[in-house]
């Protein structure tokens, strides 16, 4: 691996100030470190934000669950409060990677990285999340721009993610047999003000499937999805799943999620 300078930032301000075009923030490092090892990414400066206390922790109020950016997947998975408020969110965290990833990986890191097959982005979309950064609040729908791309600017740091507590919700995924990332993951959430069907893994970026959401709005049942045609256009195709197969899986896993709601 190419060498770099490691900084442990004491607060968000310092971390932000250290950022440049050749730096990366380090939280869990579950994507950053492997890509550096493989030479896919090189940085002059690594800014560790794990030491910033304010960025970690879970807060649950009646309407919202707010999770600090450096909160680990295992903490979300094991949080009694989250299990009570949004059980599907705790279950999603329980299903990310393997136990060692969950002991180290963070929600902020996952969202900032926006891997097209990651789980958390679908939770953000489905649960009408608001992403709090050190400079603004961003609606999840506007946050995810494309493959590995978000609206975050240089030096901007996610501080917390605020999820809206739904009436009911569920996340179901079909993992890639090799990497165990989602080939397709579908997060269905029924809110007072509408339904979201967030899909990850299927396209280059997480998205809200409006057709499925509309159908479920008029009839919230797995059977109603049977009549929806999910187009394979724009869907990913690789050695593990063709676009056509992914389109089918979106439908099947939407049904499974609705059934489990």
């Amino acid at each position: 691996m190419k060498t770099f300078n490691y900084h442990s930032a004491k607060d968000v301000k310092e971390a932000s100030k250290l950022a440049s075009s050749s730096s990366a923030f380090l939280a869990g490092g579950m994507t950053t470190i492997p890509s550096m090892k493989l030479g896919l990414a090189t940085y002059k400066n690594i800014i560790d934000i794990k030491g910033i206390k304010k960025l970690s922790g879970i807060k649950v109020s009646g309407k919202a669950v707010t999770i600090g950016a450096t909160t680990k997947h295992a903490e979300v998975a094991n949080s009694k409060e989250i299990k009570k408020a949004i059980p599907s969110l705790a279950a999603l965290a329980e299903g990310i990677g393997d136990p060692q990833v969950r002991n180290r990986g963070t929600i902020g890191g996952s969202i900032a990285n926006n891997d097209p097959a990651a789980d958390y982005p679908s939770a953000c979309i489905a649960l009408n999340a608001v992403i709090h950064t050190n400079s603004r609040k961003i609606d999840a729908e506007k946050f995810f721009k494309g493959m590995f791309e978000t609206v975050l600017k240089s030096g901007e740091i996610i501080e917390a993610i605020e999820f809206q507590v739904p009436q009911k919700s569920n996340y179901q995924k079909f993992p890639n047999p090799a990497s165990r990332y989602a080939i397709v993951g579908v997060y269905v959430a029924k809110h007072k003000n509408g339904i979201n069907v967030a899909v990850t893994g299927a396209k280059s970026c997480v998205y809200n499937d409006k057709d499925l959401a509309k159908t479920l709005s008029s009839n919230f049942s797995a059977a109603s999805i049977n009549n929806v045609r999910v187009s394979s256009s724009g869907m990913n195709s690789d050695i593990h799943a063709s676009a056509e197969y992914r389109a089918n899986m979106v439908k099947v896993f939407a049904k499974k999620a609705v059934e489990a709601c």
Binding site: S8, L26, I33, L38, I46, D48, K50, D98, Q100
Partner: peptide, 29 residues
Amino acid sequence: CDTSQCGACVVHVNGRSIKSCTAFATDLN
């Protein structure tokens, strides 16, 4: 492996298992 998947490198840090190939030693001061 070099993709953090095989788990032959798992150790405990503060009592929890992690993959030692996917953590900087500096970061564990």
